[in-house]
Nucleic acid binder design. Sequence first.
DNA 1: ATGGCCATAGTGTATGGA
Length: 256
Amino acid sequence: MKIATWNVNSLKVRLPHLLRWLADNPVDVLCLQETKLTDDKFPTAEINAAGYHVVFSGQKTYNGVAILSKRPITDVVKNNPRYADAQQRILAASIDGMRIICAYVPNGQAVDTDKYAYKLAWLASLHEWLGEELAAHGAGGLAIVGDYNIAPEDRDVHDPLAWAGQVLCSDKERAALTALVELGLTDAFRMFEQLDKSFSWWDYRMLGYQKNKGLRIDHILLSDVLARRCVACAIDRVPRKWEQPSDHAPVIATLS
DNA sequence: ATGGCCATAGTGTATGGA
């Protein structure tokens, strides 16, 4: 089975890309971030017609998450109950006994801003709640996937010197991600040999994609039960080359 | 040429993204 994540940067704009990508990549589970749609505007019918169940939690203009699945979805939790503010960034659900969490971690803007402080507080709260989710659902396997807005290591950054200490690469953000991993999770991408300069996001500006000036900030973290089943993990750059693309590429993990 | 974008709200131009 395949589990994937993709920050679509507006599902309204990117629905044709989503449907085209699913036709080419009929993954079992796909988590979306930055849908930027209120729930009444969510394209449920189109996604059902593509063969997927779907749950979602959105808001106007910003954020918004969704989980698509070929198999039925149960036990849905919207938001981190420990951090239930208006920003729709977390969606958890059970699929065939597995716990799937779709996460859109705050961007943080810049290290000296309130948004950065919000990001760190949000991550600390996520850590608390994720520990509980692992305790409750770990036996059947848990995957927490999405846009973490954190490049874990310098090799995940096109220009580590330029980005040193900057938002997405700062020590505190990396430590927060490490703390999540230390709950008993594995970065699926790094379980396998990968090409140097593998990224999942490229700035729209400065010919970022054409020059491969990117970051790897979209991650699939697997609990031990699922990590043992994981046989591959890859970033699919194909839709980043399509007309009017999202600035993020999908990441796909294959489980036996 | 060392900078070059995009989506949203809303109809100018500001904000957020990463």
